[in-house]
Amino acid sequence: MLDYETLRLIWWALLGILLIGFAIMDGFDLGAAILLPFVGKTDEERRVVINTVGPVWEGNQVWFILGGGAIFAAWPPLYAVAFSGFYLAMFLILCALILRPVAFKFRSKLANPTWRSIWDWVLFVAGLVPSLVFGVAFGNVILGVPFSFDETLRVTYAGSLLGLLNPFALLCGLVSVAMLVMHGGTYLALKAGQPVAGRAISLARYAALAMVVLFLAAGVWVAKGIDGYQLVGVIPHDGPSNPLLKTVTRVSGGWLANYSAMPWTMAAPLLAVAGAFGAVLLLGARQHILAFMASALSVAGTIATAGLGVFPFLLPSALDPNASLTVWDASSSRLTLGIMLFATAIFLPIILVYTAWVYRVLRGRVTLDEIADTSAHHY
């Protein structure tokens, strides 16, 4: 079996991969839902948008389940603190995700324009709320979350839902919304027929530019106005999972230390910006497949920027920095991580293969003519 330090690093990387996979695969669903009222002017055009994501959105949420399962099994303290401290925020996300399938199914039950318009705006909210809240959560991780442990490792959370909605976290939420609107727009440019695709291209390009501006603004804020967390002394990487056995200090600009120590990590923010600009240019050149790939790379770079910046921290504590959760003291046992890695090596490739097969089967655009064909099975 691999040593404990290596297993912890692998599962940190896998957690990042699962979060990126969720943001890329389910992100375009959320982005398309946000764009729905704006790119579809008629009922048929909105049905085009809905049917581009209708066959795949359930499968895309596998990444969300995998991410939650990985946190639960590989990082139990992180799961306990995050899902209890962010309980109301998670509840909002789950409500929005529950509303989405309800809207898909109920919208087509009546031909009444008012009825369908209501469910279209429900889909909009179901896309906007998770997009915003996920970004707000990332912002609060960078700021530090108000939790602490007592001597028996019982957690105390001193925050509130309104406390999560601070200015920096809201800025991160806007980065997330703009990023996923860009991603959803590039997907519609690839999958929807005209005139929906044309409107999506225009809005996606504006969203990409907004995402770059907001992303850079957040970076300047982190560099100039937010104290980062740093470990004091040498911490054993194969030690017990007890977050109270270390000393942590807060340092101005501390979140940039990894980028100074490991210059290769600068590839992440550069990828975030370059991918967004690439999507703008490729959409203008009508290279829709390449534009979607560039958008996906921008999404990956944005999430990797945050993950690499805070490493080795998983969840910093604003109340007691010494209680912050890190890669080296918040994992499951070595045996658990090893068994899970073996299972992941078997099942993750299977998920990738069947996902690729599904998208190959469902390739091609959804057009107004297909929607008008009542013999076809569409939402």
Rank of each mutant, 00 (worst) to 15 (best):
M1N: 01
L9H: 13
W12N: 10
I17T: 14
L18R: 06
L18E: 08
I20W: 03
I34K: 00
I34A: 10
D43F: 06
E44W: 00
E45A: 09
R46F: 04
R47L: 03
R47F: 01
I50V: 11
N51T: 04
V53S: 10
G68D: 15
G68Q: 13
A74T: 12
W75F: 15
P77Q: 15
Y79N: 15
F83T: 15
S84Y: 14
S84G: 12
G85A: 08
F86L: 15
F86N: 09
M90A: 14
F91S: 12
L97T: 02
L99S: 08
R100N: 01
P101K: 05
F106C: 01
S108V: 07
R116Q: 07
I118P: 12
D120G: 14
D120M: 10
L128M: 11
S131P: 09
L132D: 07
V141A: 09
D150P: 03
E151A: 07
T152L: 15
L153N: 09
L153Q: 07
T156M: 06
Y157T: 09
A158Q: 08
L162C: 09
F168P: 04
G173I: 01
G173T: 03
M179A: 13
L180M: 10
V181D: 01
H183S: 11
G184I: 13
Y187H: 08
L190E: 05
Q194P: 00
V196C: 11
I201F: 03
R205W: 09
A207F: 02
M211W: 08
V212G: 01
F215I: 08
L216E: 02
L216H: 02
A218H: 01
A218R: 00
G219D: 03
W221G: 00
G228K: 03
L231T: 02
L231Y: 01
V232W: 02
V234Q: 07
P236H: 05
D238W: 06
G239N: 12
P243N: 12
P243D: 09
T247K: 06
T249Q: 10
T249L: 02
G253E: 01
Y259I: 15
M262N: 13
M266K: 05
L270H: 07
L271K: 00
G275P: 14
A279R: 10
A279S: 14
L283F: 06
G284C: 01
G284E: 13
G284S: 07
F292Y: 12
A294E: 10
A300L: 10
A318S: 14
A323L: 07
S324L: 03
L325Q: 06
W328E: 10
D329I: 07
S332A: 15
A343R: 00
A343P: 00
T344G: 10
I351T: 13
T355K: 00
A356V: 03
R360S: 03
V361R: 12
V361N: 05
V366C: 05
S375M: 00
A376S: 02
Y379V: 05
